[in-house]
Design a protein around this nucleic acid. Structure first.
Lengths: 253, 253
DNA sequence: AAACGTTATTCCACAATGTGAAATAATGTA
DNA sequence: TACATTATTTCACATTGTGGAATAACGTTT
């Protein structure tokens, strides 16, 4: 009955709206959520008083406050995956000197939860908290290739393909071919599909049911990606994905 | 009257408790917050349903979920300070090849909101979301030295000094002397007070009232900190702090 | 500077929603 | 098997949150 508090759900709807589009007004928020203006007003007022939302006094516009940055701490320390993957990620970075990414499915979208940057001066990297796309990143492909069939289907149904480079996959049939390939190989490749001159290799991390719920990847400029190194990376990344899965409690992968 | 929704405040009390101590049980949370067990139970249940809290089914223990990591996105994009400081931070890192930190006061504690890591292999760095102490970091000192007198007093009243190295400042009178020095210089130094072998320089960022609400700092191994470089860093960091403040709308510093 | 449109804020009567003491179930421990 | 301890459910109650409508505060146009 009253086990789920409705105001709390409303609160987070407002916060998520604010996360999607920072710096919007009360009116704009109200247009996006389903409840009346005074309700949104009250929620924003409360969040502001508590310090979770900042208001630009001139533009009368709202934003998530830096207080949310503090929550990273607890979320990280509580994340078994993140804690467990850390040493593996460090090992990979030290070995290849390139950027290592860890992403996890959050609300049906891969979100970067950790990034160890390349020590090279020429680096390309996303930020923690960023979303990864399924069709243009190795980390995204590594995840969807090992999703339950029905979940994959559902995801692809309402998926829109933005083009980033001329190599970007932009339709379902191509992506499905790619998924089959990833499944067979055990790892995913993004060869200049997200950014020109950048190649990424990604490997899945499995849950108890043997479905991917996360992935690790390495990003590097293509000019540094010699064939022999690339082969080594593919092998080690896949092995690391398996090891992390095992440590998380998945046996015999 | 009902402008501030009480359930929302309670919700965030639970979340903050969970942030401070990840992996605690219903009982433990109830002990730390002021409201009865069924209320906490309901809040946790709701947060779990919404996906903001994860429960370890074995240990019956709760944690903030990775969903909070997504909020970084909106909080960052909405942060004028962060967006504005980014190019300055990049310039400093490119010039000195050392780790550049940006921290902001959140609930009377400096919180790292951005960190650009050194390109050197020997790197020492905190994580975004971490708290910085006032007495053992350059970034913390740079902030407290330029706080309103009454706020500073209040902060120091209930401040506890943990010792990290033999150079750590561990009492108020020493810290007050240090603060006076920082005020005079315009920048702060942490000379192996937080970590042995690590030196940091920090400079304040001011709000419209000319009080510090944030700071930038550079961290480096002492072995790389030649006197001439250090002098250059002090000058440039302080100048950068001023420039960022100006861009934020503070005139004539 | 007046009139208009738009968006933010306040009001308030109402009942739905959240409350929490107490009872019960589930779990772990001796 | 009995005993603690902690998690969950129940339920009668009123506090708390609700939202339509009114008002205020802007911003823009004429």
């Amino acid at each position: 009955m009253s086990l789920n508090i409705k105001v709390v759900a409303k609160t987070f709807e407002v916060l998520e709206t604010l996360n999607r589009e920072p710096k919007i007004s009360l009116k704009e928020i109200t247009d996006r959520v389903a409840f009346p203006k005074p309700t949104v007003f009250r929620l924003l007022h409360t969040l502001q008083t508590l310090g979770y939302v900042d208001q630009d006094p001139d533009a009368q516009t709202f934003t998530l406050s830096s207080k949310f940055i503090s929550f990273i701490n607890g979320a990280n320390r509580g994340s078994e995956l993140l804690v467990l993957a850390q040493p593996y990620m460090e090992k990979l970075r030290n070995e290849f000197k390139e950027t290592i990414n860890l992403a996890k499915m959050v609300d049906n979208t891969p979100v970067y939860i950790n990034i160890l940057e390349s020590s090279h001066s020429f680096r390309i990297s996303d930020s923690i908290g960023d979303h990864a796309s399924f069709h243009s990143t190795a980390i995204g492909k590594a995840i969807i290739a090992f999703l339950p069939a029905n979940k994959l289907k559902e995801l692809l149904k309402k998926y829109s393909f933005s083009r980033f480079t001329k190599k970007t996959i932009t339709n379902i049939s191509e992506l499905e071919k790619e998924i089959a390939k990833v499944k067979k190989q055990g790892f995913a490749v993004d060869d200049e599909e997200g950014h020109d001159g950048v190649i990424c290799i990604g490997a899945p991390i499995f849950d108890k049911d043997r479905y991917a719920f996360a992935a690790i990847s390495i990003s590097m400029p293509k000019v540094r990606a010699k064939k022999i190194i690339l082969e080594k990376i593919k092998k080690e990344l896949t092995a690391t994905g398996k090891k992390i899965s095992e440590e998380l409690g998945v046996k015999d992968i």
